[in-house]
Design a protein around this nucleic acid. Structure first.
Length: 554
RNA sequence: GCGCCUGUAGCUCAGCUGGAUAGAGCAACGGACUUCUAAUCCGUAGGUCAGAGGUUCGAAUCCUCUCAGGCGUGCCA
Protein backbone atom coordinates (compact mmCIF):
# COMPACT_ATOMS: atom_id res chain seq x y z
CA UNK A 1 0.00 0.00 0.00
CA UNK A 2 2.79 2.36 0.95
CA UNK A 3 4.62 1.52 -2.24
CA UNK A 4 1.65 2.19 -4.48
CA UNK A 5 1.17 5.49 -2.78
CA UNK A 6 4.82 6.36 -3.19
CA UNK A 7 4.51 5.70 -6.91
CA UNK A 8 1.48 7.97 -7.11
CA UNK A 9 3.15 10.83 -5.33
CA UNK A 10 6.24 10.58 -7.49
CA UNK A 11 4.18 10.51 -10.65
CA UNK A 12 2.11 13.50 -9.59
CA UNK A 13 5.23 15.44 -8.83
CA UNK A 14 6.57 14.66 -12.27
CA UNK A 15 3.26 15.75 -13.78
CA UNK A 16 3.53 19.04 -11.96
CA UNK A 17 6.90 19.60 -13.55
CA UNK A 18 5.61 18.68 -16.99
CA UNK A 19 2.68 21.05 -16.80
CA UNK A 20 4.84 23.72 -15.24
CA UNK A 21 3.01 24.27 -11.97
CA UNK A 22 6.28 23.45 -10.21
CA UNK A 23 9.64 24.35 -11.66
CA UNK A 24 12.65 23.08 -9.73
CA UNK A 25 12.57 19.65 -11.33
CA UNK A 26 13.93 18.11 -8.16
CA UNK A 27 12.54 14.75 -7.10
CA UNK A 28 13.61 14.26 -3.48
CA UNK A 29 13.62 10.99 -1.61
CA UNK A 30 9.92 10.86 -0.99
CA UNK A 31 9.09 9.59 2.47
CA UNK A 32 5.67 8.15 3.13
CA UNK A 33 5.01 7.47 6.76
CA UNK A 34 2.21 6.33 8.94
CA UNK A 35 1.27 9.22 11.22
CA UNK A 36 1.25 8.69 14.94
CA UNK A 37 -2.36 9.81 15.19
CA UNK A 38 -5.21 8.44 13.14
CA UNK A 39 -6.70 11.90 12.67
CA UNK A 40 -3.71 12.57 10.47
CA UNK A 41 -4.76 9.94 8.02
CA UNK A 42 -3.49 6.53 6.98
CA UNK A 43 -0.32 7.92 5.46
CA UNK A 44 1.43 11.25 5.26
CA UNK A 45 4.27 12.78 3.34
CA UNK A 46 6.52 15.73 4.00
CA UNK A 47 7.51 16.17 0.37
CA UNK A 48 6.08 19.69 0.17
CA UNK A 49 8.33 20.76 3.03
CA UNK A 50 11.34 19.23 1.35
CA UNK A 51 10.60 21.20 -1.81
CA UNK A 52 10.03 24.52 -0.06
CA UNK A 53 13.61 25.66 -0.47
CA UNK A 54 14.30 24.74 -4.09
CA UNK A 55 10.86 25.94 -5.19
CA UNK A 56 11.11 29.09 -3.12
CA UNK A 57 7.47 28.67 -2.17
CA UNK A 58 5.69 28.13 1.11
CA UNK A 59 5.30 24.42 1.90
CA UNK A 60 1.53 24.64 2.11
CA UNK A 61 1.38 26.29 -1.29
CA UNK A 62 3.38 23.47 -2.83
CA UNK A 63 1.22 20.94 -1.04
CA UNK A 64 -1.81 22.59 -2.55
CA UNK A 65 -0.45 22.19 -6.08
CA UNK A 66 0.41 18.55 -5.46
CA UNK A 67 -2.92 17.74 -3.93
CA UNK A 68 -4.77 19.11 -6.96
CA UNK A 69 -2.74 16.78 -9.12
CA UNK A 70 -3.21 13.83 -6.75
CA UNK A 71 -6.96 14.12 -6.73
CA UNK A 72 -6.99 13.19 -10.37
CA UNK A 73 -5.67 9.72 -9.63
CA UNK A 74 -9.06 8.14 -9.15
CA UNK A 75 -10.73 6.57 -6.16
CA UNK A 76 -7.73 5.42 -4.18
CA UNK A 77 -8.33 8.22 -1.69
CA UNK A 78 -11.27 8.99 0.46
CA UNK A 79 -9.71 12.32 1.33
CA UNK A 80 -6.40 14.15 0.93
CA UNK A 81 -5.61 16.96 3.35
CA UNK A 82 -2.94 19.54 3.93
CA UNK A 83 -2.11 19.90 7.58
CA UNK A 84 0.27 21.59 9.97
CA UNK A 85 3.37 23.13 8.42
CA UNK A 86 2.76 21.40 5.09
CA UNK A 87 2.15 17.72 5.59
CA UNK A 88 -0.05 16.01 3.05
CA UNK A 89 -2.28 13.51 4.78
CA UNK A 90 -3.82 10.66 2.84
CA UNK A 91 -7.00 8.91 3.81
CA UNK A 92 -7.28 5.71 1.80
CA UNK A 93 -10.66 4.60 0.60
CA UNK A 94 -11.98 1.92 2.93
CA UNK A 95 -12.90 -0.36 0.07
CA UNK A 96 -9.31 -0.29 -1.11
CA UNK A 97 -8.25 -1.38 2.36
CA UNK A 98 -10.85 -4.13 2.49
CA UNK A 99 -9.84 -5.45 -0.90
CA UNK A 100 -6.26 -5.74 0.28
CA UNK A 101 -7.42 -8.79 2.26
CA UNK A 102 -8.07 -10.63 -0.96
CA UNK A 103 -4.54 -10.11 -2.15
CA UNK A 104 -3.18 -11.33 1.19
CA UNK A 105 -5.32 -14.41 0.78
CA UNK A 106 -4.01 -14.93 -2.74
CA UNK A 107 -0.39 -14.56 -1.68
CA UNK A 108 -0.81 -16.98 1.21
CA UNK A 109 2.52 -18.30 2.43
CA UNK A 110 4.24 -15.77 0.20
CA UNK A 111 2.63 -12.79 1.86
CA UNK A 112 5.40 -10.53 3.11
CA UNK A 113 7.94 -11.59 0.54
CA UNK A 114 9.46 -8.98 -1.68
CA UNK A 115 12.19 -8.30 -4.17
CA UNK A 116 14.26 -5.58 -2.54
CA UNK A 117 17.28 -7.90 -2.54
CA UNK A 118 17.07 -8.20 -6.27
CA UNK A 119 18.72 -11.60 -6.28
CA UNK A 120 21.88 -10.31 -4.64
CA UNK A 121 23.96 -13.23 -3.33
CA UNK A 122 24.70 -13.02 0.36
CA UNK A 123 26.27 -15.35 2.85
CA UNK A 124 25.31 -15.27 6.49
CA UNK A 125 28.03 -16.78 8.62
CA UNK A 126 26.87 -17.41 12.15
CA UNK A 127 27.49 -19.39 15.33
CA UNK A 128 30.95 -20.55 14.16
CA UNK A 129 31.78 -21.51 17.74
CA UNK A 130 35.13 -23.23 18.22
CA UNK A 131 34.66 -27.00 18.43
CA UNK A 132 36.18 -27.04 21.89
CA UNK A 133 33.00 -27.07 23.94
CA UNK A 134 29.22 -27.17 23.76
CA UNK A 135 27.18 -24.18 22.60
CA UNK A 136 26.19 -21.89 25.43
CA UNK A 137 23.32 -19.46 25.70
CA UNK A 138 25.25 -16.65 23.99
CA UNK A 139 25.73 -18.85 20.94
CA UNK A 140 21.99 -19.47 21.09
CA UNK A 141 21.25 -15.81 20.60
CA UNK A 142 23.73 -15.71 17.74
CA UNK A 143 22.12 -18.77 16.19
CA UNK A 144 18.60 -17.37 16.47
CA UNK A 145 19.70 -14.01 15.13
CA UNK A 146 21.74 -15.35 12.22
CA UNK A 147 19.02 -17.75 11.18
CA UNK A 148 16.29 -15.11 11.36
CA UNK A 149 18.39 -12.58 9.47
CA UNK A 150 19.00 -15.20 6.80
CA UNK A 151 15.27 -15.96 6.59
CA UNK A 152 14.42 -12.28 6.38
CA UNK A 153 16.94 -11.65 3.63
CA UNK A 154 15.66 -14.61 1.74
CA UNK A 155 12.09 -13.30 2.08
CA UNK A 156 13.27 -9.91 0.86
CA UNK A 157 14.57 -11.39 -2.35
CA UNK A 158 18.20 -12.10 -1.56
CA UNK A 159 19.86 -15.36 -2.46
CA UNK A 160 21.09 -16.61 0.92
CA UNK A 161 23.56 -19.22 2.10
CA UNK A 162 23.94 -20.05 5.80
CA UNK A 163 27.44 -21.01 6.78
CA UNK A 164 29.28 -22.21 9.87
CA UNK A 165 33.02 -21.59 10.02
CA UNK A 166 34.81 -24.29 11.98
CA UNK A 167 37.94 -23.02 13.70
CA UNK A 168 39.64 -26.39 13.63
CA UNK A 169 43.18 -25.25 12.95
CA UNK A 170 44.39 -22.94 15.70
CA UNK A 171 46.22 -23.90 18.85
CA UNK A 172 42.92 -24.15 20.70
CA UNK A 173 42.65 -27.60 19.09
CA UNK A 174 45.97 -28.50 20.63
CA UNK A 175 44.65 -27.34 23.98
CA UNK A 176 41.56 -29.45 23.46
CA UNK A 177 43.66 -32.49 22.65
CA UNK A 178 45.78 -31.92 25.73
CA UNK A 179 42.71 -31.46 27.93
CA UNK A 180 41.10 -34.69 26.76
CA UNK A 181 44.35 -36.57 26.92
CA UNK A 182 45.05 -35.51 30.50
CA UNK A 183 41.57 -36.55 31.61
CA UNK A 184 42.08 -39.84 29.80
CA UNK A 185 45.32 -40.45 31.69
CA UNK A 186 43.61 -39.45 34.91
CA UNK A 187 40.83 -41.97 34.35
CA UNK A 188 43.44 -44.64 33.88
CA UNK A 189 44.80 -43.91 37.33
CA UNK A 190 47.67 -41.59 36.53
CA UNK A 191 48.18 -38.59 38.79
CA UNK A 192 47.98 -35.49 36.62
CA UNK A 193 48.18 -31.80 37.03
CA UNK A 194 45.39 -30.14 35.04
CA UNK A 195 46.55 -26.73 33.81
CA UNK A 196 44.29 -23.72 34.19
CA UNK A 197 44.37 -22.89 30.51
CA UNK A 198 42.97 -26.30 29.61
CA UNK A 199 39.23 -26.78 29.16
CA UNK A 200 37.72 -27.36 32.56
CA UNK A 201 34.22 -28.54 31.73
CA UNK A 202 32.84 -31.96 32.57
CA UNK A 203 32.20 -32.66 28.89
CA UNK A 204 35.97 -33.17 28.54
CA UNK A 205 35.78 -35.98 31.07
CA UNK A 206 32.86 -37.53 29.18
CA UNK A 207 34.88 -37.60 25.99
CA UNK A 208 37.88 -39.00 27.85
CA UNK A 209 35.69 -41.78 29.22
CA UNK A 210 34.61 -42.72 25.70
CA UNK A 211 38.22 -42.84 24.65
CA UNK A 212 39.15 -45.08 27.53
CA UNK A 213 36.52 -47.49 26.24
CA UNK A 214 37.80 -47.11 22.71
CA UNK A 215 41.55 -47.23 23.25
CA UNK A 216 42.01 -48.84 26.64
CA UNK A 217 45.44 -47.87 27.90
CA UNK A 218 47.04 -47.76 24.44
CA UNK A 219 47.99 -44.06 24.69
CA UNK A 220 48.72 -43.98 28.39
CA UNK A 221 52.48 -43.77 28.04
CA UNK A 222 52.62 -42.42 24.52
CA UNK A 223 54.62 -39.24 23.91
CA UNK A 224 52.54 -36.05 23.71
CA UNK A 225 53.22 -35.47 20.04
CA UNK A 226 51.68 -38.85 19.21
CA UNK A 227 48.73 -38.71 21.56
CA UNK A 228 47.57 -35.12 21.49
CA UNK A 229 46.76 -34.81 17.76
CA UNK A 230 44.70 -38.00 17.97
CA UNK A 231 42.80 -36.79 21.02
CA UNK A 232 42.34 -33.35 19.47
CA UNK A 233 40.87 -34.78 16.29
CA UNK A 234 38.51 -37.19 17.98
CA UNK A 235 37.55 -34.71 20.68
CA UNK A 236 36.87 -32.01 18.08
CA UNK A 237 34.73 -34.36 16.02
CA UNK A 238 32.67 -35.43 19.02
CA UNK A 239 32.12 -31.85 20.12
CA UNK A 240 31.25 -30.74 16.61
CA UNK A 241 28.68 -33.52 16.38
CA UNK A 242 27.21 -32.28 19.62
CA UNK A 243 27.04 -28.74 18.26
CA UNK A 244 25.32 -29.99 15.13
CA UNK A 245 22.78 -31.84 17.23
CA UNK A 246 22.09 -28.86 19.45
CA UNK A 247 21.57 -26.64 16.42
CA UNK A 248 19.30 -29.19 14.79
CA UNK A 249 17.21 -29.37 17.97
CA UNK A 250 17.07 -25.60 17.86
CA UNK A 251 15.83 -25.72 14.28
CA UNK A 252 18.90 -24.08 12.80
CA UNK A 253 20.28 -25.61 9.64
CA UNK A 254 23.50 -24.41 8.01
CA UNK A 255 23.89 -24.99 4.29
CA UNK A 256 27.65 -25.26 4.52
CA UNK A 257 30.18 -26.13 7.19
CA UNK A 258 33.48 -24.59 6.29
CA UNK A 259 36.63 -25.97 7.87
CA UNK A 260 39.50 -23.60 8.54
CA UNK A 261 41.90 -26.53 8.18
CA UNK A 262 40.91 -26.98 4.52
CA UNK A 263 42.27 -23.50 3.84
CA UNK A 264 45.67 -24.64 5.05
CA UNK A 265 45.46 -27.98 3.24
CA UNK A 266 44.74 -26.23 -0.06
CA UNK A 267 47.50 -23.69 0.44
CA UNK A 268 44.98 -20.85 0.54
CA UNK A 269 46.37 -19.25 3.65
CA UNK A 270 49.85 -18.90 2.15
CA UNK A 271 48.28 -17.73 -1.08
CA UNK A 272 46.34 -15.00 0.70
CA UNK A 273 49.46 -13.78 2.45
CA UNK A 274 51.41 -13.70 -0.82
CA UNK A 275 48.62 -11.76 -2.49
CA UNK A 276 48.49 -9.14 0.23
CA UNK A 277 52.23 -8.93 0.24
CA UNK A 278 52.27 -8.26 -3.49
CA UNK A 279 49.76 -5.53 -2.98
CA UNK A 280 51.97 -3.91 -0.40
CA UNK A 281 49.68 -4.48 2.59
CA UNK A 282 52.07 -6.77 4.42
CA UNK A 283 55.52 -5.95 5.76
CA UNK A 284 58.10 -7.62 7.97
CA UNK A 285 59.19 -6.33 11.33
CA UNK A 286 60.86 -7.88 14.37
CA UNK A 287 60.78 -11.25 12.70
CA UNK A 288 57.01 -11.24 12.15
CA UNK A 289 54.77 -10.40 9.20
CA UNK A 290 52.29 -7.57 9.74
CA UNK A 291 49.22 -6.43 7.86
CA UNK A 292 49.08 -2.67 7.60
CA UNK A 293 45.47 -2.46 8.76
CA UNK A 294 46.09 1.13 9.88
CA UNK A 295 45.90 2.08 6.20
CA UNK A 296 42.22 1.25 6.47
CA UNK A 297 41.41 2.89 9.77
CA UNK A 298 42.48 0.30 12.36
CA UNK A 299 44.29 1.56 15.51
CA UNK A 300 47.36 -0.58 14.96
CA UNK A 301 48.77 -3.07 12.51
CA UNK A 302 48.11 -6.75 13.06
CA UNK A 303 50.38 -9.76 13.03
CA UNK A 304 49.76 -12.31 10.30
CA UNK A 305 52.71 -14.63 10.83
CA UNK A 306 54.35 -14.76 14.23
CA UNK A 307 58.08 -14.74 14.89
CA UNK A 308 57.96 -18.51 15.38
CA UNK A 309 56.57 -18.96 11.87
CA UNK A 310 53.05 -19.86 12.95
CA UNK A 311 50.19 -17.97 11.33
CA UNK A 312 47.59 -16.19 13.42
CA UNK A 313 43.84 -16.69 13.04
CA UNK A 314 43.95 -13.38 11.19
CA UNK A 315 45.92 -15.02 8.38
CA UNK A 316 43.14 -17.59 8.02
CA UNK A 317 40.61 -14.80 7.92
CA UNK A 318 42.32 -13.29 4.90
CA UNK A 319 42.05 -16.58 3.05
CA UNK A 320 38.55 -17.26 4.30
CA UNK A 321 37.08 -13.93 3.29
CA UNK A 322 38.85 -14.03 -0.03
CA UNK A 323 37.24 -17.40 -0.55
CA UNK A 324 33.81 -16.03 0.30
CA UNK A 325 33.98 -13.40 -2.39
CA UNK A 326 35.47 -15.85 -4.86
CA UNK A 327 32.42 -17.98 -4.31
CA UNK A 328 30.44 -15.07 -5.74
CA UNK A 329 28.84 -13.58 -2.68
CA UNK A 330 28.09 -9.88 -3.00
CA UNK A 331 27.94 -9.52 0.75
CA UNK A 332 29.53 -11.49 3.53
CA UNK A 333 27.43 -11.05 6.65
CA UNK A 334 29.10 -12.14 9.88
CA UNK A 335 27.22 -12.55 13.12
CA UNK A 336 29.55 -12.12 16.08
CA UNK A 337 29.40 -11.88 19.82
CA UNK A 338 29.77 -8.24 20.77
CA UNK A 339 32.98 -9.03 22.66
CA UNK A 340 34.61 -9.37 19.23
CA UNK A 341 33.73 -5.86 18.17
CA UNK A 342 37.40 -4.87 18.26
CA UNK A 343 37.98 -7.08 15.20
CA UNK A 344 35.67 -5.17 12.94
CA UNK A 345 38.26 -2.65 11.64
CA UNK A 346 40.81 -5.33 10.82
CA UNK A 347 38.28 -7.46 8.96
CA UNK A 348 37.17 -4.40 7.02
CA UNK A 349 40.85 -3.88 6.24
CA UNK A 350 41.05 -7.36 4.74
CA UNK A 351 38.06 -6.66 2.56
CA UNK A 352 39.60 -3.45 1.29
CA UNK A 353 42.93 -5.18 0.81
CA UNK A 354 41.05 -7.58 -1.44
CA UNK A 355 40.03 -4.56 -3.48
CA UNK A 356 36.42 -4.52 -2.39
CA UNK A 357 34.16 -2.01 -0.79
CA UNK A 358 34.22 -2.35 3.02
CA UNK A 359 30.42 -2.35 2.91
CA UNK A 360 30.56 -5.73 1.21
CA UNK A 361 31.25 -7.06 4.68
CA UNK A 362 28.43 -6.60 7.16
CA UNK A 363 28.99 -7.41 10.78
CA UNK A 364 26.13 -7.95 13.16
CA UNK A 365 27.20 -7.75 16.77
CA UNK A 366 25.08 -9.68 19.23
CA UNK A 367 25.25 -8.52 22.82
CA UNK A 368 25.37 -10.60 25.98
CA UNK A 369 22.49 -12.61 27.34
CA UNK A 370 21.82 -12.52 31.08
CA UNK A 371 19.92 -15.50 32.30
CA UNK A 372 17.31 -14.86 34.98
CA UNK A 373 14.97 -17.04 36.93
CA UNK A 374 11.97 -15.08 38.16
CA UNK A 375 13.95 -11.90 37.91
CA UNK A 376 16.94 -13.24 39.82
CA UNK A 377 20.20 -13.61 37.87
CA UNK A 378 21.33 -17.19 37.30
CA UNK A 379 24.99 -17.55 38.05
CA UNK A 380 26.72 -18.15 34.73
CA UNK A 381 30.27 -18.96 35.70
CA UNK A 382 30.82 -19.54 39.37
CA UNK A 383 33.94 -21.41 38.44
CA UNK A 384 35.77 -21.80 35.22
CA UNK A 385 34.09 -24.11 32.77
CA UNK A 386 30.64 -23.95 34.27
CA UNK A 387 28.06 -22.26 32.07
CA UNK A 388 24.52 -22.64 30.93
CA UNK A 389 24.38 -24.45 27.63
CA UNK A 390 21.96 -23.79 24.81
CA UNK A 391 20.73 -27.36 25.15
CA UNK A 392 19.80 -26.84 28.79
CA UNK A 393 17.80 -23.74 27.94
CA UNK A 394 16.01 -25.36 25.00
CA UNK A 395 15.26 -28.46 27.07
CA UNK A 396 13.77 -26.31 29.79
CA UNK A 397 11.71 -23.69 27.93
CA UNK A 398 11.30 -25.25 24.50
CA UNK A 399 12.53 -24.25 21.10
CA UNK A 400 9.82 -21.72 20.29
CA UNK A 401 10.15 -19.71 23.47
CA UNK A 402 13.93 -19.74 23.28
CA UNK A 403 13.94 -18.54 19.70
CA UNK A 404 11.40 -15.81 20.31
CA UNK A 405 13.11 -14.55 23.46
CA UNK A 406 16.48 -14.34 21.75
CA UNK A 407 14.90 -12.14 19.09
CA UNK A 408 12.88 -9.90 21.35
CA UNK A 409 15.49 -7.17 21.63
CA UNK A 410 17.67 -5.34 19.18
CA UNK A 411 20.77 -7.48 18.88
CA UNK A 412 23.10 -4.69 19.96
CA UNK A 413 21.43 -4.28 23.30
CA UNK A 414 21.93 -6.69 26.14
CA UNK A 415 19.18 -9.21 26.73
CA UNK A 416 17.58 -10.46 29.90
CA UNK A 417 16.27 -13.96 29.39
CA UNK A 418 13.91 -15.02 32.15
CA UNK A 419 13.49 -18.79 32.20
CA UNK A 420 10.33 -18.74 34.29
CA UNK A 421 8.71 -16.08 32.13
CA UNK A 422 9.55 -18.05 28.99
CA UNK A 423 7.66 -21.05 30.38
CA UNK A 424 4.64 -19.15 31.63
CA UNK A 425 1.46 -19.62 29.64
CA UNK A 426 -0.16 -16.22 29.94
CA UNK A 427 -0.26 -12.71 28.55
CA UNK A 428 2.99 -11.85 30.27
CA UNK A 429 4.80 -14.25 27.97
CA UNK A 430 4.98 -12.73 24.49
CA UNK A 431 5.53 -16.05 22.72
CA UNK A 432 2.36 -17.54 24.09
CA UNK A 433 0.49 -14.34 23.47
CA UNK A 434 1.33 -14.47 19.76
CA UNK A 435 0.98 -18.22 19.32
CA UNK A 436 -2.28 -18.18 21.21
CA UNK A 437 -3.70 -15.65 18.76
CA UNK A 438 -2.93 -18.04 15.94
CA UNK A 439 -4.38 -21.05 17.74
CA UNK A 440 -7.49 -19.10 18.66
CA UNK A 441 -8.17 -18.22 15.04
CA UNK A 442 -7.69 -21.84 14.03
CA UNK A 443 -10.19 -22.84 16.68
CA UNK A 444 -12.73 -20.35 15.36
CA UNK A 445 -12.29 -21.81 11.90
CA UNK A 446 -12.89 -25.27 13.24
CA UNK A 447 -16.21 -24.20 14.73
CA UNK A 448 -17.14 -22.19 11.65
CA UNK A 449 -16.41 -25.16 9.42
CA UNK A 450 -18.68 -27.38 11.52
CA UNK A 451 -21.45 -24.85 11.14
CA UNK A 452 -20.88 -24.52 7.41
CA UNK A 453 -20.07 -20.84 7.63
CA UNK A 454 -16.76 -20.88 5.78
CA UNK A 455 -17.38 -19.72 2.22
CA UNK A 456 -16.20 -21.86 -0.68
CA UNK A 457 -14.63 -18.87 -2.34
CA UNK A 458 -13.55 -15.92 -0.27
CA UNK A 459 -13.01 -13.88 -3.42
CA UNK A 460 -16.71 -13.87 -4.09
CA UNK A 461 -17.83 -12.45 -0.77
CA UNK A 462 -18.61 -8.86 0.07
CA UNK A 463 -16.41 -7.12 2.59
CA UNK A 464 -18.48 -3.96 2.91
CA UNK A 465 -19.65 -5.03 6.35
CA UNK A 466 -16.16 -4.78 7.80
CA UNK A 467 -16.56 -1.32 9.17
CA UNK A 468 -15.78 -1.51 12.88
CA UNK A 469 -12.76 0.38 14.15
CA UNK A 470 -11.10 -2.86 15.33
CA UNK A 471 -11.59 -4.42 11.91
CA UNK A 472 -10.16 -1.53 9.97
CA UNK A 473 -7.23 -1.21 12.35
CA UNK A 474 -6.46 -4.90 11.88
CA UNK A 475 -6.71 -4.64 8.09
CA UNK A 476 -4.40 -1.63 7.98
CA UNK A 477 -1.89 -3.25 10.24
CA UNK A 478 -1.83 -6.41 8.12
CA UNK A 479 -0.85 -4.18 5.23
CA UNK A 480 2.31 -3.14 7.03
CA UNK A 481 3.74 -6.64 7.12
CA UNK A 482 5.64 -6.58 3.80
CA UNK A 483 7.41 -3.33 4.59
CA UNK A 484 8.21 -4.60 8.07
CA UNK A 485 9.86 -7.66 6.57
CA UNK A 486 11.79 -5.55 4.11
CA UNK A 487 12.92 -3.12 6.79
CA UNK A 488 13.92 -5.97 9.08
CA UNK A 489 15.92 -7.58 6.29
CA UNK A 490 17.74 -4.50 5.04
CA UNK A 491 18.67 -3.46 8.55
CA UNK A 492 19.41 -6.99 9.81
CA UNK A 493 16.92 -6.46 12.62
CA UNK A 494 14.71 -9.47 13.27
CA UNK A 495 13.36 -7.90 16.45
CA UNK A 496 11.14 -5.76 14.24
CA UNK A 497 9.19 -8.91 13.43
CA UNK A 498 8.75 -9.90 17.08
CA UNK A 499 7.36 -6.44 17.83
CA UNK A 500 5.14 -6.53 14.80
CA UNK A 501 3.72 -9.90 15.78
CA UNK A 502 3.00 -8.84 19.34
CA UNK A 503 1.11 -5.82 18.09
CA UNK A 504 -0.77 -7.84 15.50
CA UNK A 505 -1.76 -10.41 18.13
CA UNK A 506 -2.89 -7.55 20.37
CA UNK A 507 -5.12 -6.10 17.67
CA UNK A 508 -6.61 -9.51 17.07
CA UNK A 509 -7.30 -10.22 20.75
CA UNK A 510 -8.93 -6.81 21.02
CA UNK A 511 -11.14 -7.51 18.04
CA UNK A 512 -11.98 -10.97 19.36
CA UNK A 513 -13.22 -9.68 22.68
CA UNK A 514 -15.39 -7.08 21.09
CA UNK A 515 -16.91 -8.89 18.12
CA UNK A 516 -18.28 -12.30 17.38
CA UNK A 517 -17.21 -14.01 14.22
CA UNK A 518 -19.73 -16.80 14.26
CA UNK A 519 -23.14 -15.27 14.41
CA UNK A 520 -26.56 -14.87 12.85
CA UNK A 521 -25.43 -12.89 9.85
CA UNK A 522 -23.65 -15.14 7.31
CA UNK A 523 -22.37 -12.27 5.20
CA UNK A 524 -20.73 -10.61 8.19
CA UNK A 525 -19.37 -13.95 9.41
CA UNK A 526 -17.84 -14.67 6.04
CA UNK A 527 -16.18 -11.26 5.88
CA UNK A 528 -14.79 -11.65 9.39
CA UNK A 529 -13.56 -15.12 8.62
CA UNK A 530 -11.57 -13.74 5.72
CA UNK A 531 -10.12 -11.08 7.99
CA UNK A 532 -9.07 -13.76 10.45
CA UNK A 533 -7.69 -16.04 7.80
CA UNK A 534 -5.43 -13.22 6.65
CA UNK A 535 -4.47 -12.48 10.25
CA UNK A 536 -3.57 -16.11 10.91
CA UNK A 537 -1.62 -16.27 7.67
CA UNK A 538 0.39 -13.19 8.59
CA UNK A 539 1.04 -14.43 12.12
CA UNK A 540 2.24 -17.71 10.71
CA UNK A 541 4.44 -16.12 8.06
CA UNK A 542 6.02 -13.88 10.67
CA UNK A 543 6.59 -16.66 13.18
CA UNK A 544 8.16 -18.85 10.54
CA UNK A 545 10.64 -16.09 9.71
CA UNK A 546 11.72 -16.24 13.33
CA UNK A 547 11.89 -20.01 13.35
CA UNK A 548 8.95 -20.26 15.74
CA UNK A 549 6.04 -22.58 15.09
CA UNK A 550 2.46 -21.44 14.60
CA UNK A 551 0.42 -24.03 16.50
CA UNK A 552 -3.18 -24.70 15.53
CA UNK A 553 -4.13 -25.86 19.00
CA UNK A 554 -2.83 -24.92 22.41
C1' G B 1 44.43 6.43 28.03
C1' C B 2 42.07 4.97 23.33
C1' G B 3 37.96 2.41 20.64
C1' C B 4 32.91 0.24 20.19
C1' C B 5 27.89 -0.42 22.33
C1' U B 6 24.21 1.43 25.68
C1' G B 7 21.47 5.44 28.60
C1' U B 8 13.59 6.80 26.83
C1' A B 9 7.62 5.63 32.44
C1' G B 10 8.87 2.09 38.94
C1' C B 11 10.98 -2.49 35.70
C1' U B 12 12.08 -4.58 30.57
C1' C B 13 12.24 -2.21 26.05
C1' A B 14 10.12 -0.11 20.89
C1' G B 15 10.40 4.40 18.35
C1' C B 16 9.69 2.83 10.91
C1' U B 17 16.80 6.17 9.53
C1' G B 18 14.82 14.20 11.00
C1' G B 19 8.29 15.03 11.49
C1' A B 20 2.68 16.65 14.11
C1' U B 21 0.51 15.83 21.34
C1' A B 22 7.22 10.35 22.68
C1' G B 23 4.68 4.51 22.56
C1' A B 24 4.08 -0.91 24.20
C1' G B 25 4.48 -4.92 27.70
C1' C B 26 5.14 -6.03 32.79
C1' A B 27 4.26 -4.26 37.80
C1' A B 28 0.03 -0.92 40.45
C1' C B 29 -5.15 0.41 40.68
C1' G B 30 -10.46 -0.17 38.80
C1' G B 31 -13.62 -3.07 35.65
C1' A B 32 -15.55 -7.26 31.87
C1' C B 33 -16.93 -14.51 31.46
C1' U B 34 -24.88 -17.76 30.18
C1' U B 35 -20.31 -16.32 24.58
C1' C B 36 -16.15 -18.71 18.56
C1' U B 37 -10.22 -20.80 23.86
C1' A B 38 -10.88 -15.34 30.34
C1' A B 39 -4.06 -18.77 28.21
C1' U B 40 -8.19 -12.97 26.75
C1' C B 41 -10.00 -7.88 26.87
C1' C B 42 -11.31 -2.59 28.48
C1' G B 43 -10.03 1.62 31.52
C1' U B 44 -6.83 4.74 35.03
C1' A B 45 -2.15 6.38 36.43
C1' G B 46 2.87 6.93 35.22
C1' G B 47 8.16 11.25 31.23
C1' U B 48 13.46 17.19 32.28
C1' C B 49 14.05 10.94 26.12
C1' A B 50 21.27 10.93 31.31
C1' G B 51 23.08 16.39 31.12
C1' A B 52 24.85 20.88 28.32
C1' G B 53 25.57 23.24 23.81
C1' G B 54 24.98 23.16 18.30
C1' U B 55 22.82 22.12 13.16
C1' U B 56 17.07 23.73 10.93
C1' C B 57 10.92 25.17 9.43
C1' G B 58 11.23 20.75 13.08
C1' A B 59 15.80 16.63 17.17
C1' A B 60 14.72 10.89 21.47
C1' U B 61 16.86 10.49 16.36
C1' C B 62 22.37 14.15 13.26
C1' C B 63 27.30 16.90 15.34
C1' U B 64 30.50 18.39 19.77
C1' C B 65 31.49 18.04 24.92
C1' U B 66 30.40 16.03 29.93
C1' C B 67 28.51 12.10 33.16
C1' A B 68 27.16 6.81 34.08
C1' G B 69 27.20 1.44 32.82
C1' G B 70 28.96 -2.73 29.68
C1' C B 71 32.65 -4.68 26.42
C1' G B 72 37.26 -4.54 23.97
C1' U B 73 42.26 -2.92 23.64
C1' G B 74 47.92 -10.08 22.74
C1' C B 75 53.30 -12.27 17.91
C1' C B 76 45.61 -15.99 22.08
C1' A B 77 41.19 -17.75 19.43
Amino acid sequence: MKKTLLGHVRKCLENCYTEGSLSSGIVPDIVIEVPAHTEHGDFATNVAMQLAKPEKKAPRQIADILVKQLKETGDLFEKVEIAGPGFINFFINKDVWRDSLKSILAEGDHYGKGSAGNGKKVQVEFVSANPTGPLHIGHGRGAATGDAVASLLSAAGFEVVREYYINDAGNQMDTLGRSVYLRYCELLGKTIEFPENCYQGDYIKDIARDLVTKFGSRYLDAPDQDAIPVFAKIGGDIILDGIKNDLADFGVVHDTWFSEQTLFDAGKVAEGITLMRERGHIYEEEGALWFRTTDFGDDKDRVVVRGNGVTTYFASDIAYHRDKYERGFDWAINVWGADHHGYVPRLKAIVQGLGRNPDDLKIILVQLVSLLRDGVPVSMSTRSGEFVTLKEVVDEVGRDAARFFFLMRRSDSQLDFDLELAKRQSTENPVFYVQYAHARICSIFETATEKGLVPEDFNAISLARLDAAEELALIKFLGKFPETVEGGALNFEPHRITYYLQELAGLFHGFYNRHRVIGEDPELSAARLLLLRCTAQTLKNGLLLLGVSAPEKM
